[in-house]
Write a protein that binds this DNA or RNA. Structure first.
Lengths: 152, 152
DNA sequence: ATGGATTCCCACCTGTTCGCTAGGGTTCCC
DNA sequence: GGGAACCCTAGCGAACAGGTGGGAATCCAT
């Protein structure tokens, strides 16, 4: 259950775009510098986001990238889906397409419940929420439990 | 956010062991056959579970594997941690060891909340729960929402 | 409008991990 | 002793993480 580097970088880049939201676009290298991301790797990720309709790009003199929609209308899940495919998958396929037999039959509902849980978090948090440091109450309630911060 | 093949296979093998829980151990190939898992690959996974103290192995004539503890006392999270390391990681490291700057600062609490959420599910479900098809109410409540089963 | 300068865009190239296979060694029971 | 099973190691193809280099397009200045 790991968040890939692509997903983490993509969300951070999107947050940077959501923050510096004035008329002028932001250069890829500026984002890479601010967030400490390999800038050539980041270019490929921004390209995916452009093809997915999340950002707009501008070439030339002082071009760069900017969000295609308002930060309130882009969820963290949207960003992850664009660069990484399905939010949560088992062995590369989405839960409803799996089939289990014997004593593992109830494993499918478990994965589905897990996915629903992850969706509740990531679909319900927008870039604006994170950038303004004001997470929804369902999320902040979890972070206030000190046990959430201990390792295993 | 993907469940690796190792983790999926490990849980299914553990469920098979929890089901056929009489005196005699279960052979790796019998498990591989019942759950349709490549049997040589499964042997490596069972080996990890042995080193992690989840199963006991018996060589020779009619040997095999059996659980080291009661199925009620092994959680799905225990199995995944043994074969795959930390339950949820970002770019390979655990959330508390990350550091974000600028508008991405609140990304850390978000990952922590996500991990806490996943723990609530996987730490709270035992092999016995899944094998008997009686998931805890917190989990079954999620699966009863039809929206949980739709793709995105 | 022409020539830089700047930026996006595209194609390879190296290491590492993930799934998976193959084969031989070791231990146990009959 | 001899099967039958576990155990260890090596390796292979694909995908992922990260780098490099060179275009192709666009803007700004002159």
């Amino acid at each position: 259950m790991r968040i890939s580097a692509r997903a983490d970088y993509a969300v951070r880049a999107a947050l940077q775009l959501a923050h510096a939201r004035d008329g002028r676009p932001l250069k890829a290298e500026a984002i890479a510098d601010a967030q400490d991301i390999p800038h050539k790797f980041l270019e490929g990720i921004l390209n995916d986001m452009r093809r997915g309709g999340l950002v707009l790009s501008q070439r030339g003199g002082n071009g760069g990238y900017r969000l295609a929609k308002a930060p309130e209308e882009i969820s963290v899940a949207d960003v992850i889906r664009v660069v990484d495919g399905p939010l949560v998958s088992v062995r590369g396929v989405r839960p409803p397409e799996l089939s289990y037999t014997g004593p593992a039959e109830s494993l499918l509902p478990l994965w589905v419940a897990l996915r629903a849980n992850v969706r509740q978090i990531l679909d319900g948090v927008s870039l604006a929420d994170v950038a303004s440091a004001e997470l929804p109450s369902r999320v902040s309630a979890l972070t206030e439990d000190p046990a959430s911060w201990t390792n295993p």
